[in-house]
Simulated assay, not measured.
Amino acid sequence: MNVLPPVLAYGTPPAFVEHAARAGLPGWREAGSGQPVLLLHGWSVSGEAFDGQRALATQGYRVIAPDHAGHGLSAALRPSDATIAGLAMDVAALIRHLALDEVVVVGWSMGAMVAWELMRSQSDLPIAMVGSIDMTPRLITSPDWPHGLHSRYDMAQARQMTARIQQRWDSLLAPVAAGLWAKGAQPNPEQSRSVMRMMRQCAPHTLAALWEDMARQDFRAVLQAARWPLFHVYGQCSRLYASSVSHATQALHPAARLTTISGAGHAPHLEHPDQTNAALLQMLHSINDKAASA
């Protein structure tokens, strides 16, 4: 497990510039210039959740945070196929549209599945590294994978959740948002309001379809066969995943780097942005140092 470097003193980061969704492309926001770092948000929020990662733009990186279909800037997009594979196709289209090269793709929660799907179905993309933040490669638990959601999730529960999302999404906002924060911690009120606002901007029908599709996914074989460098960041106090998931996921590809953010829950980049940015910079420096020595 990596030991984090000291938290860096950042200058004032530039504001995100927003770009509206259009035919064939999701909406996105970006800040800075340099090597592109593509941040893929989780289910039911938006790329605004990466506001704290604008600080990476002060370190020579182009920070890009798209909004998946049905979320935020892309809420009006109504995909005929609301699946993880469909979201990955949208991300691939954006990478090609922006002519990104040596892009580092970092996915949080559902966004990690989208990043892993890029490895499976979009292997021609010019990706330098793929990272995940607090995610399991398989949501459903089984005898050979006891590391799913809450360590006890099955397809029947996933379908029940899908129906609840479709029928009464508003009633789920508070309990879903509560799952982001560290166990035993009270969320920052401003952050909590921001998360709830993002959730209200989402399209419930798309959220429901994506939730059920996430439950169908199994990226274990994809991680085992990964040809790109991998890294994983986990919250030490996640409410969604037991601590065992981090080491079990790394064991699928032992060369992957692993960092745990102390005192953080499912959204370490929200709760502890400086520590998370230090972890991300460590990974970015590692791939660039390797490239320089090649």
Rank of each mutant, 00 (worst) to 15 (best):
L73R: 12
L40I: 12
M214N: 03
A163V: 06
L284T: 14
Q282E: 15
D154V: 06
A215N: 10
E271M: 10
Q157V: 00
R239F: 08
A294W: 07
R193F: 01
A255S: 14
L258F: 13
H247K: 13
V3C: 05
P143V: 08
E212P: 00
M196E: 11
H205G: 10
P273C: 09
T276Y: 07
P229D: 12
A209V: 00
L56H: 07
G148V: 14
L56Y: 01
S109Q: 04
P273H: 07
M110C: 00
Q35A: 09
H266P: 03
Q217E: 08
L77E: 03
L258W: 11
P175L: 03
L281N: 09
T276C: 11
L223Y: 11
S262T: 04
L39R: 01
L173S: 05
Q167N: 11
A174G: 13
C202T: 15
L207Y: 03
P189M: 01
S121L: 07
A185W: 01
P268G: 10
H147G: 02
G148N: 07
D90L: 08
T206K: 03
A156K: 04
P273E: 04
V3K: 08
W108Y: 00
Q157M: 15
L210W: 03
D101L: 05
Q186L: 15
V104L: 13
H97Y: 11
A76F: 00
G72W: 06
S293T: 13
L173G: 05
D213A: 01
R78Y: 02
G34T: 00
R22M: 12
Y10K: 05
H232N: 15
N2F: 11
W181S: 02
M198P: 01
A242I: 10
R164W: 04
E102G: 14
D67T: 04
H71P: 04
K290Q: 13
A215R: 10
M155W: 08
G86R: 08
G72P: 07
D51L: 13
H71V: 07
S151N: 13
G265E: 04
E102D: 15
I64R: 06
W169N: 03
A278D: 05
A279T: 09
R257L: 15
G131I: 05
R200L: 06
A215H: 03
A292W: 13
S243M: 13
A55G: 03
W116N: 10
Y234N: 14
P175K: 07
A93S: 10
P204M: 08
T249Q: 14
M214Y: 05
L280T: 08
Q53V: 10
L258N: 14
V45L: 02
M135H: 10
L149N: 08
S33G: 00
A294D: 01
A256P: 15
A85R: 15
Q157P: 05
L98T: 03
W43K: 01
Y241Q: 11
